[in-house]
Nucleic acid binder design. Sequence first.
DNA 1: TTGTAAGCGTTATCAT
DNA 2: ATGATAACGCTTACAA
Lengths: 335, 335
Amino acid sequence: MATINDVARRAGVSIGTVSKYINGIKIREQNRVKVAEAVEALDYHINPYARALKTNQTRVVTVLLPNIAGIYYPLIIREIERILYTRDYMVLLMDTDSQFHLEQQKIRTLMEQLVDGFIVFPIDSRCENYQVILERRIPLCAVDMPLPGLSCTQILSDNVAAARDATRTLLGEGHRRIALITGDPDNTIAVERLNGFQMACREAGVEIPPEYILARGFREADGYEGARQILSLPQRPTALVACNYHTTLGAFQAIQDAGLSLSRDMRLVGFDYEALPKITRQPIGIVAQNIPEIAAATVRALLKQIRDPNLIGQAETIRIPTRYIPSPYSGAGRP
Amino acid sequence: MATINDVARRAGVSIGTVSKYINGIKIREQNRVKVAEAVEALDYHINPYARALKTNQTRVVTVLLPNIAGIYYPLIIREIERILYTRDYMVLLMDTDSQFHLEQQKIRTLMEQLVDGFIVFPIDSRCENYQVILERRIPLCAVDMPLPGLSCTQILSDNVAAARDATRTLLGEGHRRIALITGDPDNTIAVERLNGFQMACREAGVEIPPEYILARGFREADGYEGARQILSLPQRPTALVACNYHTTLGAFQAIQDAGLSLSRDMRLVGFDYEALPKITRQPIGIVAQNIPEIAAATVRALLKQIRDPNLIGQAETIRIPTRYIPSPYSGAGRP
DNA sequence: TTGTAAGCGTTATCAT
DNA sequence: ATGATAACGCTTACAA
């Protein structure tokens, strides 16, 4: 592997000059030509490890997430990687398997000037692991899950508006008995979506009985059991909102298993699982997060911190609007 | 950030001794205690860049894949990352967006002793990009897509057996008119699966008319159009095998759109999309790849090359058996 | 077993 | 503008 020394020798200049050339600092035209030739001829590439040792800049960003096999993470990490690559950064992937301690351990591993920044998708709203990053003055963006206790850049979907608008759509279709399945009250996303739902109902003057609101959890089983319970209520709702991917899937199956028709008996609005209506050929409305925007905002915010370390640890929340995708069979399911 | 020097000073030993301690070489017990104390007290962590500069070992592995948002990649990369982490390696993720030139470019970026090895999921069967890796004597495992032209470790599902066994199942259920949708003949996976299909038919003495075999492409549209075409044949088959995730989805939709019942009119066997039967509540058989095994074999093979560079570039093909998941409503759809 | 010192490939300082 | 040289933090002979 050719080094800067080889290049300098071949070009007949000093390594200092070559270094300047590499780093875009002006050198005499006649030297520039010679160095360029040598670089080309020797197929010289900089050694990022030597550079990192000297500069403490690695051009590597770690992305930490609970489960790369989720519905949402692959899409967003794909965007993040793509954008970062255009800015000459690479992505180190760490799956935390939704385990607090594994996350803690992996952060420790990476921390010692290994990376120029962290992009984290929190497991829950605990902040200790991330606090450590900030204490070391390492750039950090937290995405997806609101962390009220953490002073850093947070890129979040506008969950309140998302749930509010979806609910408004249902109300606009004439539904008055609408149920909601969301995560437990510890989950900040779940709470925001619940708030949006209630906001829409309140502003429409529609009273939702407490048994229509299930805030138990975000897993598929929660969606399935929740929907089953709601469907067996004496006064059954005419529409159901499920507030994440897993509960949407669970609720969908419970409705099917109950033998109800999604066009006639029970309108379903879900989150995140854009392909579900298409795959199942069923009329389901979906709230989709704006993944390209989230990725772009995240990278932008992180690079800003890398450029200006004073920004590290400054609280800033960026809300990205979601998109409501009406069911392809819209109009169906009016009560 | 504490360095090896700080530790040495605090422990009252030389940096050589500290280095030995770090690298698990025996030092005098009384020094071991002192060094351990200093490491702990100073929260010392090794600087991987300094180490890499010296040793040319980075403990980073690059995973290159066509699209992290596919059905298969997130699952397998999750496993790979998990296993590599237990062996003290990190994963650098590069999405090639199925573009040959982007792949080429990203490989170049990484090559200069940046990583200890490559795990690639090829876009197609072109080998030039990977050849370059081998020329530099960098460990390489190619996964998923057979590359007949490349002499390296290849970890592949046993595609012939997979298609053969799935077809046998259909034959065993009494089907005699079975159609196949697979990728185009340039795609080595498609060809292997076609071979398995034909093998099963041949050994059962079942003649398959040429119009039952569509080898046009692996995209969803290919599955949809292919199935439509097959369904409109004068002599319609009673079963259909779709040879990857996308065509399975497409075929499923074409069958639905044709108003045919998957339990009565047309048996469907697909690949990879394990959740499809569950999500759709339809009787679909699925050939599932053994992702944990593939990941484990891949990591094992890569680490072997890292340990013994003589193995780099040696041809070795490891075949991982697939699993056939019968449709949950099995028995249905007998012709 | 330990300490010393050279060197990995850069960047950055400082004369020139 | 350029060249010589001293770090950066580590590993590894080699000497003690």
